[in-house]
Design a protein around this nucleic acid. Sequence first.
DNA 1: GGGGCCATCATACCTTGGTGTCGGTCCGCG
DNA 2: CGCGGACCGACACCAAGGTATGATGGCCCC
Lengths: 212, 212
Amino acid sequence: MGNRAALMSTPTVFVVDDDVSVRESLELLIQSAGWRSETFDSAVPFLSRPHVAVPSCLILDVSLPDLDGLELQKRIADDRVDMPIIFITGYGDVPTTVRAMKAGALEFLTKPFVDDVLLSAIDHAIERSRAAAEFAATVRGLRERYASLTRREREVMALVVSGRLNKQVAAELAISEITVKAHRGKMMRKMRADSLADLVNMAATLSPQMRG
Amino acid sequence: MGNRAALMSTPTVFVVDDDVSVRESLELLIQSAGWRSETFDSAVPFLSRPHVAVPSCLILDVSLPDLDGLELQKRIADDRVDMPIIFITGYGDVPTTVRAMKAGALEFLTKPFVDDVLLSAIDHAIERSRAAAEFAATVRGLRERYASLTRREREVMALVVSGRLNKQVAAELAISEITVKAHRGKMMRKMRADSLADLVNMAATLSPQMRG
DNA sequence: GGGGCCATCATACCTTGGTGTCGGTCCGCG
DNA sequence: CGCGGACCGACACCAAGGTATGATGGCCCC
């Protein structure tokens, strides 16, 4: 138990702001609060940085020399779902704030802000990042298993989770019931589902990917 | 089919704003777009108005004489989940905007705004209201059925949706398997679930209420 | 041509789920 | 006190799920 904290990797707080004095003071604040920090003076270098495998968040200035903050937010929306964004800005207007929040920003702060407000926002962000990463990993695992199914197995799975009996599945696919059982068994093993309830929940989590 | 539109009740747009000229112009705008409208000069009278049974939304001024807009939003958050809020304000500041959006506001507009922007916001709001009302009705139905279960039936349901076999349920509850079957059958009928898959989905929808 | 994968089906066997009927105890309520 | 409901359980019976073994044929690729 003693070295568990040492083994856990430290969350990273990214900062993208074109003002060097802001970067420096934020870096100091972040590191003194016990997180790792990495700063960038514009969006493009940040985008080319490889992803990290630890909980993280992004403190992002709205106005930037290359891509502005909202653009950057759009770029990483699909890409890094486990990196919540905290916006900071010198002169914030309402429409920009609304756009940022609608696009899923966790927080939107105007400079100057109280340090504690930012620190607690980071706290929340890291916590959310952790949860999002965990969920993403689950979904990734499920998608891999689903991808390993054959077409028939997928068809059987879809009908089974919708509550059809083997007999009905057989009728809808115009095959015999025993064949359905074969597909079903193989599918359950591939999905590593150890009960129908399990499978239904998996399908619910997967439902966005199952349609596409 | 011909009189179906006539039978469908018209969505209602509520307006709470202390400026009479705003109320009047909004009323005109809303009604000319084909919706019903009801206006209030402050929060309290609005709160005492009975709920409507049609899709609806609320156009809400941030600053009001009695309860301010954010307070009112808090009050109706649990109460009227099917009434999305569109904020309007003369002098909007960023922190207020953030609070409103975090609390689930659909839109936050600063006066003066383009009519079309508001109209399309109302469109979205009504659509969301419709969906929310439908979902709420589903949940209400499920909760009623769940409430009609006896304690034992609920215990059996919880174990069944977690993937346990009747045999295992019997062991965990220290009763015989045949009794589990009896409870299970009665529970399925009461819940109007016609397959295990069905029940698992119901339980997923109900899960917030099942814990509490 | 052979090996691998997929899909199909069959036979046989066992487990699990589901229902109906019947009977019993306990408890609370009018 | 009697009634209803919850809870428990047994017997019987049938439907559905699950697995093992084995076999056939199509297809693709080396």
